[in-house]
Design a binder for these strands. Structure first.
Length: 256
DNA sequence: ATGTCACAGTCCCTGTGA
């Protein structure tokens, strides 16, 4: 089973890239973030023509998360169940695996109220993951807006005083892991940076100025069946690309 | 730090978010 996560930075703007990537990469499941559209605009039919069932949790202008699947899409949950919440998490049961598509708040700046919101949001997610049914294989993917370690940052000195790299954010991410989840790409590749995001500005991609902030957190069952994980940098080279590249995990699942 | 991109509304520019 091949499961990928991709922050597409507007599905409206990115449809050509997303549709061609699905046709060539053929993941069984794709977790999407930043669709930036309402459910009414989400291309359910376009995805169906490509062979995918889909579920979306959208809003008017920002955020928006989705799950596409070729292996079934059942028991969908949208958000944390809080009133007026932003569209940042959706989960479903796909081919016997509970998958989450997460778009963690950016944080903006350390002294911005949005930074506290980011930490609260992560704590709410942790509680949900801690309460999950451990008998069901689980994958939590998405744009976490946190680089887990300095290996995940092209120049740690350039990020002093910035979000995405602080101890408190990394501790919040590690707390998700303490519910029994492992960072798949880093586990399989302990030393390669495997950046997944490059700023549109400054020619960052060409210069290799990236961060690894798009992650696949997997439980022990999935970790034991994992055969590969990689970043598809080709997608970042395309015309009018997202600033994020897809992150892929492959599993040799033998589920009862 | 900032050489870009995308969105909605103020609607062909501006403010916001990343």
């Amino acid at each position: 089973m091949k499961i990928a996560t991709w922050n597409v930075n507007s599905l409206t703007a990115r449809w050509p890239r997303v549709s061609e990537w699905l046709e060539s990469a053929q993941p069984d499941v794709l977790l999407i973030q930043e669709t930036k559209q309402t459910d009414a605009k989400f291309p359910f039919e376009g995805f169906a023509e490509l062979g995918y069932e889909s579920a979306h949790f959208g809003q008017v202008q920002w955020n928006g998360v989705a799950i596409l699947s070729k292996v079934g899409l059942e028991d969908v949950t949208r958000g944390f169940g809080e009133p007026e919440e932003e569209a940042r998490v959706i989960s479903a049961l796909c081919g016997g695996v509970r998958v989450f598509s997460c778009y963690v708040p950016n944080g903006r700046a350390l002294d911005n109220p949005h930074f506290e919101y980011k930490l609260r949001w992560l704590e709410t997610l942790r509680k949900i993951l801690d309460a999950r049914d451990r008998s069901v294989p689980t994958l939590v993917g998405g744009d976490f807006n946190i680089a887990p370690s300095d290996l995940d940052v092209y120049d740690p000195l350039a990020f002093e005083g910035a979000t995405h790299v602080t101890p408190v954010e990394r501790e919040a991410l590690a707390a998700l892991g303490e519910t029994g989840l492992t960072d798949l790409t880093r586990h399989l590749h302990p030393e390669e940076p495997n950046f997944s995001w490059w700023d549109y500005r400054n020619g960052s991609f060409r210069r290799g100025w990236g961060l690894r902030i798009d992650l696949l957190l997997v439980d022990e069952q999935l970790l034991g069946s994992a055969t590969a994980s990689y970043v598809d940098r080709e997608a970042r080279k395309a015309e009018k690309p997202s600033d994020h590249a897809p992150v892929v995990g492959e599993f040799d699942l033998r589920l009862g």
